[in-house]
């Protein structure tokens, strides 16, 4: 049946946007947990946690929305990815739970404070690694038969996904350190400047490894990128330019630009990844259109989204406005 609009493309845009929102927003607060063990002192840790405390649970709502949105618009992704990444999903959820409650309990605890420090750092690391491994597993593709996952429990865990997992850990840490540059001052800010440069080197290293590795994991990617000139070549160039901007702005001790440029680095890498796999949503066999739910379901949901999401975005902007400015002092 011919439909007046191809909702699949619209939904691909909405889900892609939600995933990017989640990665950028939860990325910098997960990054605090990854940087946590390396912080100069306990007072800095208080500030780091404070800097994301008001916004982190709103950030994680995007994850729930991504999950529910996929079930609504691209159920095949939901029903293949989650079984295929079964163990990884559990680790991610356990990590998110521990770091989530650590926010609440750490400031209440005295003698048990160190437990919640570990819960925050460990939970953030595990959750981030698992998310990075998901990205790697997506590039690798999934063993499916007739729309059902048929692979094993640890198919997702390969040298490649370990690299992408660690790569995302470095990437979120970079988002976290540039966030600290923007939100703090004094010693902690100087520490964040130093850490940012080291993390940038690490991220670029992983970036290079993954770029060389990916075409060997997936021949289609090789074809896409190296079969003559393509407009998508601008994406890695823009990513590299973002990396240069991070470097130069840190050198000049600018406060806002490092974070913005890191977001740019993430955005162009993400778009490059999508360009590599387009239009496959459950590689190697199923495209966006194979994975989509029924037209009337996508339409029913879209009407709600169009009406409600402007309010949601308005609230988020408002809450960030409330908590704008530098974070000062600890709680104690």
């Amino acid at each position: 049946m011919e439909q007046p609009f191809d909702l699949v493309i619209i939904w691909a845009g909405i889900i892609g946007f939600s995933v990017m929102m989640y990665v950028l927003m939860d990325g910098f607060d997960l990054g605090q947990g990854i940087l946590y063990p390396f912080a100069p002192d306990d007072h800095s840790r208080d500030i780091m946690m404070n800097s994301v405390a008001p916004v982190w649970d709103g950030n994680e709502t995007w994850l729930v929305m991504g999950g529910a949105g996929l079930l609504g618009a691209f159920p095949l992704v939901y029903s293949v990815f989650l079984p295929a990444l079964y163990i990884g999903v559990f680790l991610m959820l356990a990590g998110l739970i521990f770091r989530g409650v650590a926010f609440e309990f750490r400031f209440k605890a005295n003698t048990t404070k160190y437990i919640w420090d570990w819960a925050f750092a460990g939970g953030s690391f595990v959750a981030t690694f698992a998310q990075g491994a998901v990205v790697g597993a997506y590039v690798q593709g999934f063993a499916t038969d007739n729309f059902v996952y048929v692979g094993g429990a640890f198919d997702w865990l390969t040298p490649f996904t370990i690299i992408t997992g660690l790569g995302l850990v470095a990437g979120y840490a970079l988002l976290g350190s540039t966030w600290l540059i923007m939100k703090t001052e004094g010693e902690l800010q100087q520490w964040a400047y130093r850490v940012t440069l080291r993390l940038l080197v690490l991220v670029l290293l992983v970036f290079a490894i993954i770029s060389i590795y990916t075409p060997f994991v997936d021949a289609g990617v090789m074809e896409r990128w190296f079969h003559g000139f393509s407009i998508i070549w601008f994406l890695p160039l823009l990513a590299l330019y973002s990396a240069y901007l991070i470097y130069s702005s840190v050198k000049k001790q600018q406060e806002g630009l490092p974070f913005v440029a890191t977001m740019g680095l993430f955005l162009f890498t993400y778009l490059g990844l999508l360009a590599s796999k387009w239009p496959y949503l459950v590689p190697p066999d199923y495209t966006l259109w194979d994975a989509a739910s029924a037209y009337e379901s996508q339409l029913f949901l879209l009407l709600g989204f169009l009406f409600v999401i402007p309010f949601v975005l308005g609230y988020i902007a408002w809450s960030y406005w409330i908590f704008r400015g530098k974070v000062k002092g600890g709680y104690h």
């Binding site: 529910a68 079930l71 159920p75 079964y86 559990f90 059902v148 029924a294 949901l301 709600g304 989204f305």
Partner: peptide
């Protein structure tokens, strides 16, 4: 999705929008 993927996939046209509306 993790434990009941056949159920989720079969009912996604209803369940997906309803759960998304909840969010």
């Amino acid at each position: 999705g993790t434990n009941w993927s056949n159920f989720s996939y079969a009912t996604a046209n209803f369940l997906g929008p309803v759960l998304s509306y909840e969010v």
